[in-house]
Amino acid sequence: MALTISYFAWVRERMGIGEESIERPVGVSTVADLIAWLAARDERGGLTFSEPGRVRAAVDGRMAGPGTALGRDIALFPPVTGG
C-alpha cells in the first residue's frame, strides 16, 4: 500500500527532502516500525533517526505515538517550538 511521508524542520533538512511516497514495506505497521525502517534504509535515514525519541509524528492528520498504526500519510518532525 502506498504511504506518503512528509518531513519538517531539522528532520526535513537531514533527510534532504520534504516529502516522498513509498510502498509500505512488509512488516512495517506502526510509526515506530517506519522510523526503524527509515533509519536502516540508508545513511541519511540513519543520521536523521539515530535518536527516535526526538521525533514526533502525525498519522492522517492526527498526532500519533510510536505504537500508532500507519495510514495513508505520515508527517515526521521534531518537538514543536511555536508561540
Partner: peptide, 22 residues
C-alpha cells in the same frame, strides 16, 4: 507552544543558524 505544529529556526549575524530546542 506545545500542541501546534510550528518550528523556530534562529539565524545570527555571523551566519550561524539553529533550530530552537523545546
Amino acid at each position: 507552544k506545545t500542541d501546534v505544529m510550528l518550528w523556530k529556526r534562529e539565524r545570527f549575524v555571523d551566519g550561524r543558524s539553529a533550530w530552537v530546542e523545546p
